[in-house]
Simulated scan of single mutants.
Amino acid sequence: MLTRREALLGSVLAAAAVATVGSAPVMAAAKDVAGLPREKVTLVSPPFVHAHDQVAKGGPRIVEFTMKIEEKPMVIDADGTQLNAMTYNGTIPGPLMVVHEGDYLELTLINPDTNTLGHNIDMHAATGGLGGGELTLVSPGEQATLRFKATRPGTFIYHCAPGGAMIPWHVVSGMSGAVMVLPRDGLKDDAGKPVHYDRIYYLGESDFYIPRDEQGKFKKYDSAGDNYDDTVKVMRGLIPTHVVFNGKAGSLTGENAMKAKVGETVLIVHSQANRDTRPHLIGGHGDFVWEQGKFANPPAKDLETWFIRGGSAGAALYTFRQPGIYAYVNHNLIEAVELGATAHFTVDGKWDDDLMTQVEAPKAIAS
């Protein structure tokens, strides 16, 4: 007898088969782009981003990426709590993919036969039914290749969307990432002048919903599908057990803190596939912030905290002016401190007393 999960997956696969019948126009488009140069890019794990030009060199090209889906247990806090994760390329979030406006992004999505579930990818940067979701739904042991034209500059999320209750379950199990489509002539400030970044980091914020046993301890499961019923019950309460950056509480602190130097300009790309969030850099600012993530719009200036809508990605540019450890948090401070949404930047350089100085050290108050 089919489980509810298997029945859901079967209906999604059937729908996808119907949706892709008569897909000749997709194949016909190959003629139009056959003469374009191709660039094969090897993805890297967040918070790092693959090498790319900030200003495009030459005309449009086809940029090729390959991502493998991995279902695997991942520890998400210092207490050893386990998430039965579903991932793109083995990381939460999946890697950031960078192209330029007018380029074609070509992604090969691989679902190894060692997995147990069907998966796909909904690209918010793409134009077409379900963001390519119906063209990329792959069962274990299958792969598919999707190509789309990057027509809108900005930062966009991607996520798994296999249908029904499977969509939120796969997303809060780790299956999201982001695409950045740069303007061909690079980023501009609010006055239209070019801006450049020395470093780029990508943070994916995730909300997890881990079931508990009768004693209140977080439960563990053998495979990706075994936790479905229990997790859905927790999800429906809309109260996450963990809110973290890059898959784990503390994943970007200590030795793993993001690095910079005084005088360097850093671009921070931040995505959240499911819930609203409020990034804040303690001790710094957003010099220029594309809060909605769309580079065709002028950035806001000098923000203390910005807003990333659930289901979107944004970008903030900041030039560090003082050395030290900067906490980058979700400024729902309960989620930052209690649930895990805190990262660190470690910045090297010389202190500037003109910007901040201790005039008098703490001392006892005279009676």
Score class of each variant (00 low, 15 high):
Glu70Leu: 10
Thr253Lys: 08
Lys57Phe: 08
Arg236Gln: 15
Tyr104Phe: 07
Asn330Gln: 11
Leu109Ala: 05
Arg5Gly: 14
Leu182Trp: 05
Glu335Asn: 06
Gly128Leu: 01
Val359Cys: 11
Leu9Trp: 10
Cys160Gln: 09
Thr346Ile: 13
Arg147Cys: 11
Asn330Leu: 10
Gly284Thr: 02
Tyr326Gly: 02
Gly293Ala: 05
Thr108Pro: 00
Pro299Thr: 06
Gly283Arg: 01
Leu303Ala: 12
Gly237Cys: 07
Asn246Phe: 07
Trp351Asp: 14
Lys193Gln: 11
Gly225Asp: 12
Glu255Asn: 13
Val244Gly: 01
Val41Gly: 02
Met258His: 01
Lys72His: 07
Gly186Ile: 08
Leu146Phe: 05
Gly22Leu: 07
Val244Phe: 06
His52Asn: 05
Asp229Phe: 11
Lys31Val: 15
Val41Pro: 03
Arg199Gln: 08
Ala19Asp: 08
Gly324Ile: 01
Leu109His: 01
Gly311Ser: 02
Asn332Phe: 12
Leu2Asp: 15
Leu187Arg: 04
Lys259Ala: 11
Lys219Arg: 12
His50Arg: 04
Pro95Asp: 09
Glu338Ile: 14
Tyr88His: 03
Asp207Phe: 15
Ala34Met: 01
Arg147Trp: 03
Pro362Glu: 12
Met175Pro: 04
Ser173Cys: 14
Val138Arg: 00
Ala273Trp: 01
Gly90Asn: 07
Met356Ala: 15
Leu135Phe: 11
Asp53Met: 08
Leu281Tyr: 02
His242Ile: 07
Ile121His: 01
Val269Cys: 03
Ala273Cys: 05
Gln358Lys: 14
Lys68Tyr: 07
Val55His: 10
Ser206Phe: 09
His159Tyr: 13
Lys219Cys: 12
Leu107Asn: 04
Tyr318Thr: 06
Glu335Arg: 09
Thr136Ile: 05
Gly131Phe: 04
Glu205Arg: 08
Arg321Met: 10
Ile69Lys: 02
Glu205Asp: 11
Pro47Ser: 08
Tyr209Ser: 09
Val55Leu: 09
Thr145Lys: 00
His159Gly: 13
Leu117Gln: 09
Gly263Tyr: 02
Val179His: 00
Ala125Arg: 01
His119Val: 04
Ser223Gln: 11
His280Val: 13
Gly177Trp: 01
